[in-house]
Computed example of a mutant assay.
Amino acid sequence: MTHILGLDPSLSCTGWGVIRVEGSRLAHVANGQIATDPSAPMAARLAALQAGIAEAIATHRPDRAAAEEVFVNKNPQSTLKLAQARGAVLAACGEAGIEVREHAARAVKKAIVGTGGADKAQVQAMLKVLLPGAAIAGPDAADALAVAIADAHRPI
Protein backbone atom coordinates (compact mmCIF):
# COMPACT_ATOMS: atom_id res chain seq x y z
CA MET A 1 0.00 0.00 0.00
CA THR A 2 1.35 3.40 -1.03
CA HIS A 3 0.13 6.91 -0.24
CA ILE A 4 0.80 9.56 -2.89
CA LEU A 5 0.54 13.32 -2.36
CA GLY A 6 -0.41 15.15 -5.55
CA LEU A 7 0.50 18.83 -5.78
CA ASP A 8 -0.83 21.68 -7.93
CA PRO A 9 1.34 24.65 -6.89
CA SER A 10 0.15 28.20 -7.42
CA LEU A 11 0.83 31.40 -5.53
CA SER A 12 -2.86 32.28 -5.26
CA CYS A 13 -4.17 28.79 -4.40
CA THR A 14 -2.17 25.57 -4.15
CA GLY A 15 -4.09 22.33 -4.40
CA TRP A 16 -3.09 19.08 -2.73
CA GLY A 17 -4.58 15.60 -2.66
CA VAL A 18 -3.62 12.27 -1.12
CA ILE A 19 -4.61 8.91 -2.57
CA ARG A 20 -3.99 5.36 -1.39
CA VAL A 21 -2.82 2.82 -3.97
CA GLU A 22 -3.15 -0.93 -3.43
CA GLY A 23 -2.23 -2.80 -6.60
CA SER A 24 -4.48 -1.32 -9.27
CA ARG A 25 -7.03 0.02 -6.75
CA LEU A 26 -7.14 3.71 -5.89
CA ALA A 27 -8.82 5.33 -2.90
CA HIS A 28 -9.24 8.95 -1.89
CA VAL A 29 -7.65 9.85 1.44
CA ALA A 30 -7.86 13.65 1.63
CA ASN A 31 -7.55 16.85 -0.38
CA GLY A 32 -7.52 20.57 0.12
CA GLN A 33 -6.51 23.98 -1.11
CA ILE A 34 -4.20 26.55 0.44
CA ALA A 35 -5.19 30.07 -0.58
CA THR A 36 -2.88 32.99 0.10
CA ASP A 37 -3.76 36.61 0.71
CA PRO A 38 -2.86 38.59 -2.44
CA SER A 39 -2.21 41.68 -0.33
CA ALA A 40 0.33 39.88 1.91
CA PRO A 41 4.07 40.18 1.29
CA MET A 42 5.56 37.52 -0.99
CA ALA A 43 7.58 35.93 1.82
CA ALA A 44 4.45 35.52 3.96
CA ARG A 45 2.53 33.94 1.07
CA LEU A 46 5.34 31.47 0.37
CA ALA A 47 5.64 30.63 4.07
CA ALA A 48 1.88 29.94 4.19
CA LEU A 49 2.16 27.53 1.24
CA GLN A 50 5.13 25.73 2.75
CA ALA A 51 3.42 25.44 6.15
CA GLY A 52 0.16 24.21 4.60
CA ILE A 53 1.88 21.45 2.64
CA ALA A 54 4.02 20.54 5.67
CA GLU A 55 0.80 20.15 7.66
CA ALA A 56 -0.75 17.91 5.00
CA ILE A 57 2.41 15.78 4.98
CA ALA A 58 2.48 15.52 8.79
CA THR A 59 -1.20 14.56 8.90
CA HIS A 60 -1.35 12.06 6.02
CA ARG A 61 2.23 10.72 5.89
CA PRO A 62 2.52 10.15 2.12
CA ASP A 63 5.22 7.83 0.80
CA ARG A 64 6.00 10.15 -2.11
CA ALA A 65 4.71 13.23 -3.89
CA ALA A 66 3.98 14.17 -7.49
CA ALA A 67 3.71 17.51 -9.26
CA GLU A 68 3.20 18.72 -12.80
CA GLU A 69 6.34 19.80 -14.62
CA VAL A 70 6.89 23.55 -14.88
CA PHE A 71 5.48 25.20 -17.96
CA VAL A 72 6.52 28.64 -19.15
CA ASN A 73 3.78 31.26 -19.46
CA LYS A 74 3.86 34.05 -21.99
CA ASN A 75 4.00 36.41 -19.02
CA PRO A 76 7.42 36.14 -17.31
CA GLN A 77 6.00 37.52 -14.03
CA SER A 78 3.43 34.70 -13.90
CA THR A 79 6.14 32.13 -14.55
CA LEU A 80 8.29 33.59 -11.77
CA LYS A 81 5.42 33.55 -9.26
CA LEU A 82 4.60 29.94 -10.17
CA ALA A 83 8.24 28.98 -9.73
CA GLN A 84 8.39 30.63 -6.31
CA ALA A 85 5.20 28.88 -5.15
CA ARG A 86 6.49 25.60 -6.50
CA GLY A 87 9.76 26.10 -4.62
CA ALA A 88 7.91 26.61 -1.33
CA VAL A 89 5.80 23.50 -1.87
CA LEU A 90 8.76 21.35 -2.93
CA ALA A 91 10.77 22.63 0.04
CA ALA A 92 8.07 21.26 2.37
CA CYS A 93 8.46 17.86 0.68
CA GLY A 94 12.24 18.06 0.86
CA GLU A 95 12.12 18.97 4.53
CA ALA A 96 10.02 15.84 5.15
CA GLY A 97 12.37 13.68 3.09
CA ILE A 98 9.71 12.88 0.48
CA GLU A 99 10.66 12.18 -3.13
CA VAL A 100 8.79 14.34 -5.66
CA ARG A 101 8.18 12.91 -9.13
CA GLU A 102 7.23 15.21 -12.00
CA HIS A 103 4.73 14.67 -14.80
CA ALA A 104 3.96 16.60 -17.97
CA ALA A 105 0.47 18.14 -18.00
CA ARG A 106 -0.46 16.16 -21.13
CA ALA A 107 0.64 12.91 -19.44
CA VAL A 108 -1.58 13.67 -16.44
CA LYS A 109 -4.61 14.30 -18.67
CA LYS A 110 -3.89 11.14 -20.66
CA ALA A 111 -3.65 9.06 -17.46
CA ILE A 112 -7.01 10.36 -16.22
CA VAL A 113 -9.11 10.82 -19.36
CA GLY A 114 -7.24 8.85 -22.04
CA THR A 115 -6.20 11.87 -24.11
CA GLY A 116 -3.58 14.53 -23.47
CA GLY A 117 -5.86 17.22 -24.90
CA ALA A 118 -8.61 16.80 -22.28
CA ASP A 119 -10.04 19.91 -20.66
CA LYS A 120 -10.49 20.56 -16.93
CA ALA A 121 -14.17 19.56 -17.00
CA GLN A 122 -13.31 16.16 -18.47
CA VAL A 123 -10.60 15.58 -15.86
CA GLN A 124 -12.98 16.53 -13.02
CA ALA A 125 -15.70 14.23 -14.40
CA MET A 126 -13.28 11.29 -14.51
CA LEU A 127 -12.12 12.00 -10.95
CA LYS A 128 -15.69 11.36 -9.81
CA VAL A 129 -15.50 7.94 -11.48
CA LEU A 130 -11.99 7.10 -10.25
CA LEU A 131 -12.54 8.37 -6.69
CA PRO A 132 -16.27 7.83 -6.04
CA GLY A 133 -17.71 9.71 -3.10
CA ALA A 134 -14.70 11.98 -2.68
CA ALA A 135 -15.63 15.54 -1.69
CA ILE A 136 -13.17 17.60 -3.70
CA ALA A 137 -12.30 21.00 -2.21
CA GLY A 138 -12.11 22.79 -5.56
CA PRO A 139 -10.43 22.87 -8.97
CA ASP A 140 -6.88 23.14 -7.61
CA ALA A 141 -7.43 20.14 -5.33
CA ALA A 142 -8.92 18.24 -8.30
CA ASP A 143 -5.80 18.97 -10.35
CA ALA A 144 -3.62 17.74 -7.49
CA LEU A 145 -5.58 14.49 -7.20
CA ALA A 146 -5.21 14.01 -10.97
CA VAL A 147 -1.43 14.35 -10.65
CA ALA A 148 -1.39 11.78 -7.83
CA ILE A 149 -3.41 9.33 -9.93
CA ALA A 150 -1.12 9.85 -12.93
CA ASP A 151 1.83 9.09 -10.65
CA ALA A 152 0.14 5.92 -9.42
CA HIS A 153 -0.07 4.70 -13.03
CA ARG A 154 3.57 5.50 -13.82
CA PRO A 155 6.01 2.65 -13.34
CA ILE A 156 8.56 3.15 -10.59
Rank of each mutant, 00 (worst) to 15 (best):
G52H: 06
S12D: 13
R64I: 01
S24D: 11
A66L: 01
P38V: 03
I19C: 03
C13V: 15
H3K: 15
A85W: 01
M126Y: 11
A85L: 03
R20N: 13
V89C: 05
L7V: 06
A35Q: 15
V123A: 10
G114C: 10
A91D: 04
G138F: 10
H3A: 13
Q84I: 02
G87P: 05
M42P: 00
A96T: 06
S12Q: 04
A85Q: 01
A146N: 05
T36A: 10
P9K: 02
E22N: 14
V18S: 07
D143G: 11
D8F: 08
L130S: 00
C13G: 07
A111T: 09
G32T: 10
H153N: 14
N75Q: 08
P38W: 05
V89Y: 06
Q77D: 14
S12A: 15
V29H: 12
G116C: 04
V18N: 07
P132C: 07
R20T: 12
G52C: 08
A137K: 05
K109V: 06
A56F: 01
G114I: 09
V123Y: 09
L130D: 01
L145E: 10
V147W: 01
M42G: 00
G52R: 03
P9E: 05
A107R: 11
E102R: 02
Q124S: 13
E99S: 14
A148V: 05
V21F: 02
G87F: 04
R45L: 09
P76V: 06
P132V: 04
V108A: 07
H28K: 05
A44R: 14
S12C: 00
A135S: 14
V70F: 12
H153A: 14
A104F: 04
L5Q: 02
I4M: 03
